[in-house]
Structure formats: C-alpha cells, structure tokens
C-alpha cells in the first residue's frame, strides 16, 4: 500500500508545484545566437550589480526568438527577444493578433560579418562581385545568364590564387544569411550587371530579380551551415580550401586558426565597421514587452543597463568582446527610459 501512497503523494507534489508556479522573478530572454554572447555578458553583470536574479538567456535564432516573443503576454512567455535583424511586418502582425501590442525596440550596436579561411592557406582580398561570381547559381557571361561555370577562385578573379571554390555560408534560418545575401551577393549581382539582365528577363520586376540574384549554387561548392560558427570552423579546419562566413567577435577569439579576408580593400575591425568603411555589418536589436515592465522585477532596469554607456559604450565590455558600439546610443537610452514603443513615431 505504501507504494500507492508514495505515488499519489508524488503526483500531489507535482500538482502543487504546478499551481505554485505563477510568480516568476527571473527575466527570460531568447533569440539570436549572435546576440547571445552580448546578452549573457550583460546578464552576468546585471546579476552582479543588482539585487535581481541573473536573467536566463537562451539562443535559437532570431526568427525562433521573435516567434516565442509574439506568442502572447503572460508569465510563461519570454520578456525579451534578441534579434540580429529588425522585426518584420509579418511578425508584428502575429504579435498584435496575440495581444503583444506594445513593445520597445532597442538597438544595441552593430556586428561585423567577416570572411575567413584557414591561417595556413592563401590570403584573399574580396569584393562583393567575387562572391557573386563564385557562389551564385547563374552569372552573366557576355550579356546572357548561364549556370555558374566557376570552380576555382582563379576563374573568378585572375589575381586570386589557384584554389578550388569551397564556401561555408550560414543556413537560411540565421539572420547572418540575410545580411550576407543583401550586402554581398546582391551587391555583386548589381555590380556584375546580372541584376539588370534578370530584371529585363522578369519584365522589370525588381523583387523577382533580387530573388533570383541571391539564389546560391547547389552543386556543393557552397555549403549551408545550420549550426554555429564552431561548426563552420571545424569544416575549415578539416578542409583547408574552405572559406567561411563568421561574426567578427568569433573571429577575434580564434585568430590563431583563422585569417580574415578584406572586403573591398577594408580589413574588418570594430574601428572600420563603426566608421562604415567595412561594408558587411548589421545592427543588433532586442525587443522588450512593455506589458511585462513592472510585472517581471528588474525588466526595465535590465533594458536600461544593457544600453548604458558603461556596458554598450565604446569602452564597455560588449565592445571589448566584439560589438561595434552604436554612435546614437544616447537616443536609444532615452527611448528605453521613456519606454517608447514601436510605431509611436520614435
């Protein structure tokens, strides 16, 4: 009989816990794996300096984070979504229909995307056109679109070393992929004249032409990496001809294994990105649910702490880790202090 008692009491405890599980005092953050290291640095410092518990930061990607963010308002939904891109209008609609009407958009800074290869391999000086010619599914040859014939970097650009094309690019669920497409492939598409050809073929439809521009080849020369940068690094270490796409902060932690390529003649660094000389960068955001401010203890303090000068400023720990600090940080601080929600003319 004791067995039955034991089981039933265990179940009762579980049920009790379930009913007691209402008051949450920990901030819950989820989203972009690019923002994760920065958010965890801030969370750690927040836990040290305030009497609030250390926030919990999960990764999973920008889209996954925003999806969870838009699930609704309440203690079992997350308070903050990290994103390495701005929220899309479709996502705002989902949010609104689920009751998440007011949220604050906070830009924390900028992140650079670098192209790096094995330290023992050849050095490269890229332009967006080179990447388009190497990785696009179709390129323009003598005024006609043909399936990409390039198999060696030497064919792409005569000044490049003799090395087979093998690129590891982020998979489509990553925010980084979008920046790579917009700032590199599309640029190259326009620069090589392929864009005009495609526009013509599509009857002047710009959107369709852009879509065809960013279609990458699928013959194995370009490999989508759905995992983290550690996976890209492992691929490059096992294949010295590989060239990978990384975040600046990741590269700076692995300078003994990777060498970085220049883009349009500029070496990526926090310096060259903040001045805008290095072209491939993107803003990083987080979104705060206004309805949770005042309900979840410390939420507003955390948001303010994140963008404080001593954290996100040019001398703060985030910049030290690889974030390019935002020159308009003051405006952001003001926006957070006033709880300016998105769409209210900020």
């Amino acid at each position: 009989m004791s067995l039955v008692k034991c089981t039933s009491s265990a179940l009762a405890i579980t049920a009790l816990c379930a009913s007691a599980a209402t008051a949450r005092d920990q901030i819950q953050v989820a989203g972009s794996s690019t923002v994760l290291p920065y958010a965890s640095i801030v969370a750690e410092a927040f836990g040290e300096n305030f009497d609030f518990p250390t926030p919990v930061v999960e990764s999973g990607g920008s889209s996954a984070g925003l999806k969870r963010f838009c699930e609704g308002v309440g203690e079992n939904t997350i308070d903050i979504a990290n994103a390495s891109r701005q929220i899309k209008s479709g996502e705002v609609e989902v949010c609104t229909s689920n009751g998440v009407t007011d949220f604050i958009e906070v830009r924390v800074g900028y992140d650079g995307i670098v192209f790096a290869s094995d330290i023992t391999g050849n050095t490269f000086e890229f332009t967006p056109s080179d990447w388009f010619l190497a990785l696009s599914r179709e390129i323009s040859v003598d005024g006609k679109m043909v399936a990409n014939p390039n198999t060696n970097w030497k064919q792409v650009n005569a000044s490049f070393p003799d090395q087979p094309i093998q690129a590891f690019v982020p998979g489509t669920k990553h925010g980084t992929r979008e920046v790579f497409e917009d700032k590199v492939i599309l640029e190259g598409c326009e620069a090589t004249g392929a864009f005009d050809l495609l526009k013509e073929a599509n009857g002047g439809d710009k959107k369709a032409a852009e879509k065809e521009c960013i279609a990458l080849r699928t013959d194995g020369k370009s490999v989508d990496i759905d995992g983290d940068y550690t996976e890209t690094l492992a691929r490059i270490e096992s294949n010295n001809d590989g060239i990978g796409v990384f975040g600046l902060a990741f590269y700076e932690n692995n300078t003994d294994k990777l060498q970085v390529a220049t883009m349009s003649g500029v070496v990526p660094s926090t310096q060259s990105i903040s001045t805008g000389d290095y072209p491939v960068s993107r803003p990083l955001f987080f979104y705060v649910k206004k309805a949770h401010i005042g309900v979840i203890p410390g939420l507003k303090e955390f948001a303010e702490f994140f963008v404080a000068e001593e954290i996100a400023g040019p001398d703060g720990p985030l910049a030290e880790y690889g974030l390019v600090s935002d020159p308009e940080l003051e405006a952001t601080q003001e926006g957070v202090a006033n709880e300016t929600v998105i769409g209210s003319g900020s």
Binding site: Q26, L36, E44, G47, V56, V57, E58, S59
Partner: peptide
C-alpha cells in the same frame, strides 16, 4: 524546454 543557454544562477 529551455535548459540550454546562458543560465548562471
């Protein structure tokens, strides 16, 4: 179930 990430408690 969210047990992976930065959870420093």
């Amino acid at each position: 179930i969210g047990m992976v990430g930065f959870i420093a408690s």
